[in-house]
Design a protein around this nucleic acid. Structure first.
Lengths: 255, 255
DNA sequence: GCAAAAGTGTTTGGACTACACCCATGC
DNA sequence: GCATGGGTGTAGTCCAAACACTTTTGC
């Protein structure tokens, strides 16, 4: 390590930004908040904030997640912080020009949550919402239009961060049981399949999917109950099992 | 994002730490440097240093890598910075107590390099060396003994960072062509197999391995030459192909 | 000739795909 | 009855593990 002189180290601001994903109405959606200040005033951005002086990075992300969604994060690296959404570190973004005001290094985190009623950023439904990632990442339009919403792309480099988070989620549900983080505590095989279909943007064979997930040891455990909330024949209810890594993995169909 | 006041943001020092891996004499090795200052004076640590004020994180990592090894990094995110070692961001470590002097957030990077002659940190062979990761991560001893070397574990939280980097490398050579980053520009199938064996710590069937890698399109391209440097029948020489992701992946034998 | 490493062929079993088909509910 | 989704059975196919075997060098 280079010689150290505490009086001359270059000071940085360190923030956490959150990619919070959920599945709503068959679409992968991300939580975005409307910026109230310059720069990018009025534009949509990922939720985030400064890391506090005596706070770990994961703790800062969990705090921001709770403030924005009310979710209690279950960070695997700090076990049993409560049950709730999955939270993991994604990547760190520190381009010198990414924030015009100053040098900001942002440690992005990825959170996966079941379908929640509605964001509650101060109770103001106009300042936070779920938006389909397909709309947020559309190259031309960038943001989502309609309802007089700003349709420009996300503030700062948040489109890139969101893209990285979505890609992480898409690959991680292949070889881990993380797709259950998008489901409520009890769910059916069909509901889990619709999560895979929404995240991957594909259509899966219900028969083979059922055989696959129920045949992977530790992935799902039957809870005993059944439900008919999807219509048709009653479906068995399951909880997430103890397995975290799927072997063999789920296979994402070729593009 | 929380209200912003430039005069009150908590200042952090931001560093990059490097996990530089190579394969030497059938063992996965990491580059470590001896600390000259407190804290952890005389202990081994990962190479690293402060990020400069107008420097991107990847650029800082590439600069440190060049300073320590002379390697020109090929960072996929900033294309064509030159040819040489593979370099990618690993994870960020910001526990408030990880450096007793001050609040330091370290953006760790992972570099994969072919077997190099010897570290040249100021030409002092005693201040930088390759050490088998098995020794560095041994829970009891921590460091590596012998030759009057300090045998305590790595400084700071560098054992954890090294462990994360090794785990990343082990999983990434499964589904990407990154294992070729451990090889010289021209190499044989047997040399590539010994890379997999060293990184995974397993023994692979030479026949099936040969069929697998030569049958994966874009993984290897024959360079035309042959070599007998391994003894036995002359082996075809290959270069890394254009494929970056392996489909189907290499299969790591069960533990 | 013998050891050593490279490379090919063959058998076998597991797993995925693509279906056909039956089951249990709401209406 | 009929639509809807849940769940099982089965044949074909692909792929990797396991192992026998041939090839080409150095000594």
């Amino acid at each position: 390590m280079a010689p150290y002189d505490p009086s001359t180290f270059p000071p940085f601001a360190v923030t956490v930004d959150l990619v919070v994903l959920t599945v709503r109405r068959h679409a992968l959606c991300a939580l975005v908040v409307r910026r109230g200040e310059t720069p990018f005033q009025g534009r949509w951005a990922l939720p985030g904030g400064f890391v506090r002086t005596d706070e770990d990075l994961g703790a800062a992300a969990a705090r921001e997640l709770a403030e924005e969604t009310g979710l209690c994060a279950h960070d695997p690296t700090t076990p049993a912080a409560g049950n709730g959404a999955h939270l993991e570190q994604l990547a760190t973004y520190g381009d010198p020009g990414r924030d015009p005001r100053m040098r900001v290094v942002s440690v992005a985190h990825l959170a996966l949550a079941p379908d929640l009623p509605a964001p509650r950023a101060g109770g103001d439904a106009n300042s936070a919402r779920w938006a389909p990632v397909e709309d947020l990442l559309r190259p031309e339009e960038g943001g989502f239009g309609g309802e007089g919403e700003p349709s420009a792309s996300l503030a700062f480099d948040h489109a890139r961060i969101l893209g990285d988070g979505v890609e992480r989620a898409r690959s991680k549900i292949e070889y881990s049981s993380l797709a259950t983080a998008f489901c409520p505590p009890e769910f059916t095989v069909g509901e889990l399949r619709r999560v895979y279909e929404a995240v991957w943007g594909v259509v899966l064979d219900p028969r083979n999917f059922h055989r696959k997930v129920t045949g992977t040891p530790g992935f799902l455990v039957p809870s005993g109950g059944t439900t008919t909330r999807q219509g048709g024949r009653p479906a068995q209810l399951f909880r997430a099992g103890s397995a975290t890594v799927l072997n063999p993995p789920m296979l994402r169909p070729e593009v």
